[in-house]
């Protein structure tokens, strides 16, 4: 695997007595990474530290090997699209982009061509270019925010909840843009509180809850890591009725369904942590011949919902 582009070591961030991030260790590698967690999980705090807007309370965070706070060499390589919808209401998109571009070190002469290409790339209709940003809809705001993040050709693009408020077509547009950017070799971190939004887009996922990293890595690794949390199992064995009786007597199940023809027992677990401690022993003691065990919670989203609620 490539070297990490972001590395957090024992990273914590407090807001007074409220903990935003709690002593987390993680690495983010090149590619598209989904940052997922419910509201208040610490996603925006982490993103603000990565983009140099906040400092860690303790621990360290390195982006491209450097601390991002007050570090132009790191910020030069980052494009940031915040969650907030606020834009300078009185400015037109071209003025805003050229102002921000000049701040980023892009020569004035690069505009308006660069602005036009950016707005075309994010699919903002030409009819809206003369309007002030205050007149923009949510979807148009997301597009122009993305344009400003792409302006200085960053190596790492960070998008905080970019799908918020978008209609399905807008979501598809943004997803397509992100895929084409990834195709060009730009690393992307995209946060969302809805995992399903990211599942088709991201190679890697980091799940946060209550300021801690619950799981991190490639999607399938996470799925197998978290499959221990599955609450519904399906077991094919030589005597599914006997297995059902054992589980029922041991007070392990909430309900079950026997498929005689397939020699299969589907059951819902009552207390997963207690059940999985005893599961191997139960099978050994039963003397059953087991052909297959599978989790019914195959969707990453289902697992995410379980571990974050």
């Amino acid at each position: 695997m490539n070297d990490p582009i972001i590395q957090g070591i024992k990273l914590s961030r407090w807001y007074g007595v409220v903990m935003g991030l709690n002593n987390i260790d993680f690495q983010i590698h090149p590619g598209i990474t989904g940052l997922v967690g419910p509201n208040g999980a610490g996603k925006s705090t982490l993103i603000q530290i990565i983009t140099g807007q906040l400092q860690p309370s303790s621990g360290s965070l390195k982006v491209f090997g450097e601390t991002p706070w007050n570090q132009p060499s790191v910020l030069r390589r980052i494009g940031y699209c915040p969650e907030r919808e606020s834009l300078p209401e009185h400015l037109k998109p071209m003025d805003w982009l050229s102002g921000l571009g000049q701040i980023s070190g892009i020569p004035r002469t690069a505009f308006p061509e660069l602005g036009i290409r950016l707005l075309k790339r994010v699919k903002l209709g030409e009819a809206h270019w003369k309007k002030r940003l205050g007149q923009y809809s949510k979807g148009m705001r997301q597009r122009v925010k993305l344009a400003q993040a792409l302006m200085h050709s960053p190596d790492l693009l960070i998008l905080d909840e970019p799908m918020n408020g978008l209609d399905p077509m807008g979501r598809q547009d943004i997803a397509d843009i992100l895929k084409s950017l990834a195709h060009e070799g730009i690393s992307i971190i995209i946060s969302s509180h809805i995992l399903a939004e990211l599942e088709s887009l991201c190679k890697n996922v980091m799940i946060l809850n209550w300021g801690r990293v619950i799981a991190s890595g490639a999607k399938n690794e996470i799925r197998s890591d978290l499959s221990q949390w599955a609450e519904e199992l399906s077991v094919r064995c030589d005597d599914p009725q006997k297995l059902a009786r054992i589980l029922f007597d041991g007070d392990h199940v909430l309900g079950f369904d026997i498929q005689k023809e397939e020699q299969r027992l589907d059951f819902r677990i009552k207390n997963p942590s207690k059940f999985y401690q005893n599961w191997n022993q139960i099978l050994q003691d039963s003397g059953l011949i087991v052909f297959e065990i599978s989790s019914k919670s195959q969707s990453l989203n289902q697992i995410f919902n379980k571990v974050t609620t």
Partner: peptide, 21 residues
């Protein structure tokens, strides 16, 4: 797809951008 613009962040560029905004 955007060609990489030549980027040279400097104080006067920042001043020009902030002044414009």
């Amino acid at each position: 797809t955007l060609d990489k613009p030549s980027i040279h962040p400097n104080f006067f560029g920042i001043l020009a951008g902030i002044w414009k905004l």
